[in-house]
């Protein structure tokens, strides 16, 4: 995990995002434990209350759950939830930006579509 301490994004949101990313990439598998608040606090010099605030976002989003006396665990189905959430945010988060930058660069719609097709063919090279 890597945190950006420059203030661009609140640390508790980063905690939530980083764990979410960990679940998405399979670093934290479903039904397994995520690092404890103390562990993360200690390792990254972050106040435990801040870590907890981030964790609570994931609890609200039903990605992790607290198991009494054991700690926080990734819920079954968490990967699917993240996938769906990211798919529905894809237009806002990525497509709009790409289109706006394409316009700045005076690329036409047809040219942009061609570039996207090229991206699929070369698998991003």
């Amino acid at each position: 995990m890597q945190f950006d301490f420059s203030g661009q994004e609140p640390i508790y949101l980063q905690v939530a995002n980083q764990i979410e990313e960990g679940i998405f990439t399979g670093a934290f598998k479903e039904e397994t434990q995520v690092p404890s608040t103390t562990e993360m606090s200690r390792e990254f010099h972050i106040n435990p209350a801040t870590v907890l605030k981030g964790m609570n976002i994931l609890v609200t989003e039903k990605l992790v759950e607290k198991r009494r006396g054991l700690g926080m665990f990734v819920k079954k189905g968490a990967y699917q939830l993240i996938l769906e959430k990211r798919q529905s945010a894809f237009f806002e988060d990525y497509v709009k930006k790409i289109v706006s930058e394409a316009k700045n660069l005076k690329l036409s719609e047809v040219e942009l579509i061609k570039l996207i097709q090229r991206g699929f063919k070369t698998n991003g090279d």
Partner: peptide, 11 residues
């Protein structure tokens, strides 16, 4: 020191 401080604070 920071690690120990947060550790003892948590426990």
């Amino acid at each position: 020191f920071y690690k120990e401080l947060l550790d003892t604070y948590s426990s």
